[in-house]
Design a protein around this nucleic acid. Sequence first.
DNA 1: TTCCGTTGTCACTAAACCGTCACCCTACTG
DNA 2: CAGTAGGGTGACGGTTTAGTGACAACGGAA
Lengths: 229, 229
Amino acid sequence: MARILVVEDEPSIQELISVTLTRTGHDPLRAPDAETALRLLQAELPDLVLLDWMLPGQSGIDLARRLRGDERTRGVPIIMLTARGDEQSKVTGLETGADDYVTKPFSPRELAARIKAVLRRQKPQATEDPVEIDGLRLDPATHRVTARGAAVVLGPTEFRLLHFFMTHAERVHSRAQLLDSVWGDHVFVEERTVDVHIRRLRGALEASGHDALIQTVRGSGYRLSCQKE
Amino acid sequence: MARILVVEDEPSIQELISVTLTRTGHDPLRAPDAETALRLLQAELPDLVLLDWMLPGQSGIDLARRLRGDERTRGVPIIMLTARGDEQSKVTGLETGADDYVTKPFSPRELAARIKAVLRRQKPQATEDPVEIDGLRLDPATHRVTARGAAVVLGPTEFRLLHFFMTHAERVHSRAQLLDSVWGDHVFVEERTVDVHIRRLRGALEASGHDALIQTVRGSGYRLSCQKE
DNA sequence: TTCCGTTGTCACTAAACCGTCACCCTACTG
DNA sequence: CAGTAGGGTGACGGTTTAGTGACAACGGAA
């Protein structure tokens, strides 16, 4: 789900963290010290950095400051791992811009929760504006679809599919494009699966009096069109 | 941008907060204790109060209760500053009416984010006004819920949950959002726990003749809706 | 202290949903 | 007009997600 750089010198804790991350669907990058961390950061930017306070050589706080100073890495959120106690250094240290901190010892659950919270805070939420085409109305906020007032019941996938069509109307989308945009680019499903969902979506729409809203373009894909032909 | 009253006795933290506020375009009013705070509040109402949990003399929670008790200051949102680990105080505090919590030590970035969130959240709703939907009435001031006159008995959590739903009706809320808004951002609770409380809330409502008020949106979360389907 | 209310979590059940296939139909090709 | 490829369609496990009852931990009240 998210790439997370774990900067931690103690192997057992490193291991514990990595296992926790994997189990919660994340992708840990390991670094035992600041130098390794910086090298890894050259290659690719992670979605989050878990940073031990005490590190051999360059300390965690130095690394944090450095990350904040660099334009490229400035946006990457940081969670600090600190030992219990030592309050005042925390305050000054967190001033450098860590987004959260976890005191050792910590429970895997707590760690997971904090990571989730920080990541959630980080990412902007999707477009929530209602869309309306030809009397058909879809509202992401309320997760409702109505056809001239009458409710249309859709499954989650059909909902996303319709949302995509309505925000990209009049254009032909190949099955591959639809899989990318509606299912997500990483999943592997048969292209024909799209057909089935199109079918289900059509069924739901026709039940509400919207015929031929979604048209087939033979050899290319599908299209949502308001103008009848 | 916004006037913010900072009630904090520790000078270094007071300083840190004030600097942060100024930097994020706000206007800090400083008070080292509850008495000073009250005096400042006489003069003018701030847009938000940042309140330390532990204060010399009158404690933060006392002050919060007092602010909530006074008609004039009731609408002003409060963010509490608490020491880490004091989970219980969060719950008590939420009942007194704090809008959010920040645990010390905190990062300026986090504080800024919370303030922004609370100010944004505050705008559309007056938290303390009674809400009524479809014959169901909830009064935050008296902490009472009635369904067409008949009393509905709810636990504290179910009450907050229902309150949130009623002040954000028709919208779909994910379990994570509900945990954020009803439980508080930094409480570590399984997402499925929401389900259980939804169930309890539904049970109580159905006992009072309100069926299907809270709807499940599969894959997304829950929604309070007056319009049946 | 004991009792009671509340809460978070779990295990289990029920239901919805998804992806896939097989088969059929249609439209284009020569 | 037959052949072929692409699309429509119904059905069927398997998986995911939500509903539900039970239970232990906890704090506050008695």
